[in-house]
């Protein structure tokens, strides 16, 4: 199988530069990096992709069982690393991809050598002695929101969204297409994300790690950022003065600065 087209992998930046693998989270696709990727590509080899089921990935490769847990997404990452034979990768994971990065790094310790987590949460649902910020009912509400919002996705448009190399202009006409996902696929990704518990996996992290959080983030509150920072020995915690869950969009300069400072210190 051609992993590059399956995951809609795009590569920019100088060939011999250090490798940054940018992994989007639940919701949208690699367009999430559009405000930071060009600047990063000046000094880094920047690899972006869509998880199978998101963006312009090959929907025919999607499998409800594989993508029901974060391991399936980590397998995508590992397969991309192997297909491109990436070495010394700094993995930049947004949101749930932070935990996907943890799993992928454990699976390929010889390839992923540092982790940058943007808005990480190892567990979204509260449990005794742990506050993730959400109850199981909240997650049901989210699933309901997914059901009532098709966001421009429809079965007839799927081939367009999946990529239509002959007529690229088709995709541009779609509104909201960056977040357009087959509702059935979005549901599986939402459950995999918000019902996951990666707290034990966090303890396995043994590579340099940056925890990047926003000062006001409902999805990954500061309490959770502190938890992640505490569990990963030697990790660095940076709090951006930003609201929401996507600082790479809402505060791109500050995000870039934190990223490049951290990666610069690694080499």
């Amino acid at each position: 199988m051609d992993i590059v087209s399956r995951n809609n992998v795009t590569v920019t930046g100088p060939q011999d530069a250090p490798v940054l693998l940018l992994a989007h989270g639940f919701g949208c696709d690699q367009n999430m990096w559009r405000l930071v990727a060009p600047a990063l590509a000046e000094n880094y080899r920047v690899i972006q992709f869509d998880y199978v089921g998101s963006g312009r990935s090959d929907l025919s490769a999607w499998d409800a069982t594989r993508y029901a847990t974060l391991d399936g997404y980590a397998q995508d990452v590992v397969e991309i690393c192997e297909a491109l034979d990436l070495r010394e990768v700094s993995f930049v994971g947004h949101s749930v991809s932070s935990m996907v990065g943890v799993l992928a790094a454990a699976a390929t310790p010889d390839r992923i050598t540092s982790l940058i987590m943007i808005g990480p949460s190892p567990c979204y649902v509260d449990s005794p002695g742990y506050r993730g910020g959400f109850s199981a009912e909240d997650i049901d509400e989210l699933l309901e929101s997914l059901d009532s919002n098709y966001l421009g996705w429809s079965a007839t448009m799927a081939p367009v969204i999946m990529g239509n190399p002959d007529r690229p202009e088709l995709g541009e006409e779609l509104t909201n297409s960056f977040c357009a996902t087959d509702p059935a696929i979005a549901r599986v990704f939402a459950r995999a994300t918000f019902l996951s518990d990666s707290r034990d996996d966090l303890k396995t992290v043994n590579v340099p790690t940056l925890v990047l959080e926003c000062s006001q983030d409902v999805i990954a509150p500061r309490e959770v950022g502190a938890y992640v920072h505490d569990v990963i020995p030697g990790s660095r915690l940076v709090t951006l003065d930003a609201t929401g869950h996507c600082p790479q969009l809402s505060a791109p300069e500050a995000t870039l600065a934190a990223l490049t400072e951290f990666i610069g210190n690694q080499s």
């Binding site: 559009r34 929101s145 966001l151 409902v218 999805i219």
Partner: peptide
């Protein structure tokens, strides 16, 4: 649930 949806879909789309 709506907040999560807002932060994972609405806000990023609005930015983009």
């Amino acid at each position: 649930g709506g907040k999560i949806y807002h932060d994972t879909h609405f806000a990023p789309l609005l930015s983009m």
